Amino acid sequence: MNDKTLDCSDIDRFLGKPIQPGRTREPIAGNDIRRWVQGMHYPNRLHYDDGFAAEGRYSRIVAPLSFPVACDDGHGTAPACVGLIPNSHLIFGGDEWWFHGPRIFAGDRIHNERIPLDYVVKDTKFAGPTCFQRGDNFYYNDRGDKIATQRSTSIRYRADLAREMGGSKDPQDDPEWTDDELRALEDRKFEWIKSLHDLGHGKRWWDDVKVGDKLPTRVIGPHSIASFTTEWRAYLFTIWCGVIRRTDLDMEALGFTDDFAGKEQDPVLELENPEMTDGAYIGPSRGHLFPRWARRIGMPRAYGYGASMGAWILDYFAGWAGEWGSLLHTNCSYRGPALCGDISIMDGSVTDKLIDEQGRAVIKADFKMKNQLGATMATATAEIELPKR
């Protein structure tokens, strides 16, 4: 293609029509939950320590609110990635979540109903004409309980234009951290972990929260190819035959460039040569773990997963609310990736408190994630129900 257009017309025929569901192959195991919180850097003992969890609200280990996306077969982006866009690639743009009350425990089977919603094309400095596409995910357990709704936004763009326009302006070399700086980072991380310990099984009362209160700072990183790989393997679909595969997924039919149109998640090839279907090595996901491939799609070096960034945000709010609080709704926008060698610094504050029309004691909060240079990586808002005295 010599012009600078982005043909999205094929998307129209998919809008409003359900696509194949995402389905776990086996019941969720306790170690699936433990592997998830370990991969997401979320040391909340409620989700991995049997003894601690047994003394709490649920009397057993419960999955964190971020866990539904681990049960999907594509980070929740499947309904936001339908239709042919020639010579394109995809990154995550954001997620909006609604939580309906039921929680996930070991023994549950999870499935995800999915419907493409809409799209809009905007001009960006990153890649020129860019498609912002949305789709809805509805997560259920095997008893028919609706657990969560996720409205996912994907960003689809022409990789050649991203390279031509310079893509990300970040340097290609990882930043260097001294031993003293790394030790200081570990201290900062532990301050947030201690805030989880301090709350323990206690209740964060709505009555005690004030508008303007600051939430504890959370730090993750420095990110590395090792940490990104650990995140990748926490998603059940990255395990060979870990989920029931879709039969309607074709990367070439989506218009992915040749370098990234491998047979990732192909259910037939998976049985013959699963390494060819493993997105860590071949296919559209390999840009996360290999700098060479990252640069092919406009990224300067290896970079993290948008769905993981979303999980960090959900865990941040839910960890502050505690096990007696309920995260009702979040709206998250991803502005820039977690690049290899960088750190992610998360801060939030209470912006409002109210009793809603259902009589729930609710606080509203906002959120910002930045890297060590002050560049904004993500923003979010949340509504959280807290217990009232």
Rank of each mutant, 00 (worst) to 15 (best):
G212L: 14
T217K: 11
V209G: 08
W192V: 07
G212S: 13
F237P: 03
M251A: 11
K169Q: 04
W232N: 07
K214V: 04
W205I: 05
V209C: 13
P222F: 05
G200H: 11
D208M: 04
A184G: 06
W232P: 01
G167T: 00
E252M: 08
F260Y: 04
K194A: 10
D198Y: 12
A184E: 04
R204W: 06
K169D: 01
D250I: 07
W206F: 12
R188P: 03
L199P: 11
I193S: 13
E191M: 05
D248V: 11
R188M: 05
D170T: 13
L199W: 09
I244P: 00
K194W: 07
H201M: 03
H201G: 02
R183I: 06
L185V: 14
W232Q: 04
D248Q: 06
D198T: 15
T230L: 15
E176L: 13
W240G: 01
G255D: 02
T178S: 14
D250K: 05
W206S: 02
E186M: 07
D173L: 13
W206P: 02
D213A: 06
F237I: 07
R183V: 09
R245A: 03
K210H: 14
D179A: 08
E252A: 07
R233P: 08
G202E: 13
T178K: 10
K189W: 02
K169A: 02
G221Q: 03
E176G: 07
F190V: 06
G212W: 11
G202M: 05
R233A: 15
E191A: 14
C241N: 15
R163S: 00
R245I: 01
E191P: 00
P222T: 07
D187L: 09
L249C: 02
D173N: 14
R183K: 11
G202Y: 04
W177K: 02
W240V: 08
G167E: 00
G255P: 02
A234I: 03
D213R: 07
D207K: 10
D187M: 06
R188C: 02
T229M: 13
H201A: 04
D248H: 10
L196Y: 07
Y235S: 01
D259G: 09
V211C: 04
H223F: 09
K214M: 10
M251S: 05
S227D: 04
E186Y: 05
I193Y: 15
D207H: 15
W240L: 03
A253M: 02
F237C: 14
K203Q: 15
D248A: 15
T247L: 06
D259V: 05
E191W: 04
T257F: 00
S195C: 12
D250V: 12
Y235N: 01
T257L: 00
P216T: 12
L236S: 07
G167V: 00
T230G: 13
F237D: 09
K194Q: 14
T238L: 05
W205S: 11
A253V: 01
G242N: 12
E231S: 15
E186I: 05
D187N: 02
D258S: 01
D259M: 08
T257P: 00
A261P: 06
F190C: 15
D213H: 13
A261G: 09
P222K: 08
F260P: 01
V211K: 06
D170C: 11
V209R: 13
T247Q: 10
T229K: 12
D213C: 12
M165I: 00
D259W: 04
L249N: 01
S224D: 09
R188K: 10
